[in-house]
Design a protein around this nucleic acid. Structure first.
Lengths: 212, 212
DNA sequence: CGTGCGATGTATCGGTCCGATACATCGCGG
DNA sequence: CCGCGATGTATCGGACCGATACATCGCACG
């Protein structure tokens, strides 16, 4: 999971660890709290050992400016390699059953802009199936085993069931949109300007690179 | 987390591992898939080493019936000790910040019937605060950083934000109910009979014990 | 002028939990 | 009588988290 997310992010621009964590937190804020350095740094090392990312020397800001006043410590900048991009492609193409659990699905979804439409559809349908199964399980418990459980446990199940039904509906919409070839509809709150409809293989000049 | 759930379940009746997993899955189905034996068995051993649970010999079905025909293998039945019950009480009382993340909250909530009202209220409010923070984070991203993110990532955040708002409302209701001294309202779908209002320290004759 | 504090930044360690795997028994239907 | 799905116990490697340590930078406040 982390491996996938890192490879995905580094395709947008090179970054160092701290920055990576921030971007990751922003992009995945909806599904997980904040990834830990205790997994981030070891994973970076693993990816580097596999040749999927490399350390790029921190650019000393237009060459000889700020020469060595304070010894320029730290700041290891990572960038993705060609092999890394290939690996990312593989990870997308695989999209096995583990892609359908909460975290796995969320992470893959966050990188749908780099995923081809057929795979997007496959993942959305796999996820829907999984949620439908969970929903049926909850209905069973609420129906058959209701009297065995206390009121709080039942309330928890009811809330969970509600969330399942909601997510299935959400997925249905997304699937319908995919089939009709449109990008995810943004008819909601009109935040900022008009209807950008950039779609699957994203406009490649999308780098974003603000370093003061 | 697992430790807490096991101690909670074993207070209802002694069980062996497999049974424990099934009950756990039923009770926590709304929040996590199914706990793994790879964590269940080691945890059981840990709890046993700490003296919080003990192995109870499998009852050979009315003494000398079925004597040794097939060597009576396996089936290690665990039961909670007095120290274990005390430990469970401590774990409830602590209810630190880790109690407010998704899994931690869910597990604690599932055992609210064994939790005093003051603690219930504290946990619900802590959880609400945490979700409100997540909600604000998502609003920020959707507001400030919207143009930096692709349409899919934004859609994910929007869905997450919706879930947050929904959960806050749910928590508000539960908190209001707690304050008014009522059990969780079940005004919803009229599954089965009338208004049972068993509350906090649950009617102790609640064992449930169907072994054929 | 300094001093302390919050953000930036890299890194490790112990522990929890998962997923895959192995293996054995039981009861039932084909 | 044979296989298959449910019941049942158990281990191993790996992913990830939470706490912790430590160092630098810029700025606000006294």
């Amino acid at each position: 999971m982390l491996e996938f997310a890192i490879l995905g992010l580094l395709q947008e621009s090179p970054m160092h660890g701290y920055e990576l964590r921030k971007e990751l937190t922003a992009k995945l804020g909806a599904i997980r709290a904040a990834i830990s350095y205790g997994s981030l740094y070891p994973t970076l090392r693993r990816l580097q050992a596999a040749g999927w990312i490399t350390e790029a020397a921190e650019t000393p800001v237009t060459a000889e400016e700020v020469p060595a006043l304070t010894s320029r410590r730290g700041r290891v900048v990572y960038k993705i390699t060609a092999e890394g991009k290939e690996r990312f492609g593989q990870l997308i193409a695989q999209a096995g059953p583990e892609t359908y659990d909460d975290t796995g699905f969320g992470v893959h979804f966050a990188f749908f802009a780099r995923t081809d439409q057929a795979t997007r559809l496959r993942i959305l349908e796999g996820r829907r199936r999984k949620i439908e199964e969970r929903r049926e399980g909850l209905r069973d418990v609420l129906g058959r085993a209701a009297e065995r459980l206390d009121a709080y446990t039942l309330e928890l199940q009811r809330h969970g069931l509600d969330a399942c039904e909601r997510e299935v509906r959400w997925l249905e919409e997304l699937i319908a949109n995919e089939r009709s070839g449109r990008a995810p509809t943004v008819p909601n709150i009109g935040t900022a300007g008009g209807r950008r409809e950039d779609n699957s293989p994203p406009p490649p000049g999308e780098t974003r690179n603000e370093r003061p």
